[in-house]
Design a protein around this nucleic acid. Structure first.
Lengths: 192, 192
DNA sequence: CAAATAAAAGTGAACGTTCATTCTTTTTTA
DNA sequence: TAAAAAAGAATGAACGTTCACTTTTATTTG
């Protein structure tokens, strides 16, 4: 019990350190020794939890992606109307990207660079199913434009990543009012 | 003919090699020796053209960004109506992202990671002014939503980056019809 | 206009450093 | 007290950059 708990703490510390350091310097510019130091662990200990550096970053990606989607779909019910459901999920995602911005930034970096290997990227995609199902329903009900899910995602969800990056860079601040405007833009781009 | 006797061809070869290799492996995983080899040049020669590795990638970024915006605004006239002008620019950008996808991918990687230093990022932003001017006019004429330029960019332009990445990954193919649908989504998200 | 000289461009090998990973030893746990 | 976990030191490979040198191009001179 105590032993297992301790192990999980160390694993989490390593994953957190990886996120922070990769955000600040990029994956290949982040030495294992630094990750170890930030997690208060010896470099050698990392290899008890992960096979190698690539495995560490793959697992970190999958972990963070799982947190992200769990957060996105929390309290979503399939009984909601399409618009209601979309607004709920959209706002959860906005919330995640703007508040858990370290995690969101890490995902953004992984999704736009070759640091994560293909199987792990695939693994991370799976979890979006509830949103795709909602869109399917929306199309059937004639509420959502009958276009590819990639287009829907590109216009309804992905802009949040851009806004998050701008906010992170400090060139822009998303307040309540602008989140409303962003939601309005997202919904107008996909509703029929 | 004072200073620059150095061949512009070599500089271009180095920049092209940088784009290709950074796209495939990421900046820090791309050794100078490999860049040199791909450009048919000695590693030492790189240092005649660029101060160091960081300078090489900064200059590459600025170069590519300039190409991108030059392409985007080609044949755009301020005399065009707001909608006409927007459609023109939007389709040029779409064209660039989907055809010059090596360049577009490189920019996307730079904009989502900490590899480019802040001054060079700022330098790259300048060139977007004509689009911002168009949006200003659109807002004044009551055609475009009176919201932040960041929001407009996030919804009208940035989704193309996502679609380009998806296409690059091979999970998705943007044909003529889908480009039309994408344009339609872009325009609906920003028009009043 | 050659031949002679200077300057610039280009090179391959080498240097010092850093890094991921492993090895050996110590500490913790049960 | 034996096995598991963790630590720190050690290792070899890889990297960015520099150095000493050669080749190419431009300028001067007789």
């Amino acid at each position: 019990m105590a032993k297992l708990q301790k192990s999980i703490d160390k694993r989490n510390a390593l994953i957190d350190a990886t996120i922070t350091l990769v955000n600040n310097s990029g994956f290949h510019a982040t030495p294992m020794s630094k990750i170890a130091k930030m997690a208060n662990v010896s470099p050698a200990t990392i290899y008890l939890y992960f096979e190698n550096k690539q495995d560490l970053v793959n697992k970190t990606y999958i972990d963070v992606k799982a947190q992200y989607t769990a957060y996105a779909f929390k309290d979503y019910e399939e009984s909601m109307s399409v618009e209601e459901g979309f607004e709920h999920i959209w706002k959860r995602i906005a919330d995640f990207k703007l508040n858990a911005s370290e995690s969101a930034m890490f995902l953004s970096q992984c999704d736009n660079t070759p640091i994560i290997d293909e199987p792990s990227l695939q693994e991370g995609i799976k979890h979006l199913q509830p949103l795709l199902d909602l869109w399917k329903r929306g199309k059937e009900e004639g509420i959502i434009k009958p276009i590819s899910d990639y287009l829907l995602y590109a216009y309804a969800i992905n802009p949040l990543s851009f806004l998050m990056m701008a906010q992170k860079r400090g060139t822009f601040k998303l307040d309540k009012k602008q989140i409303e405007q962003a939601y309005e833009a997202a919904w107008s781009s996909i509703r029929k």
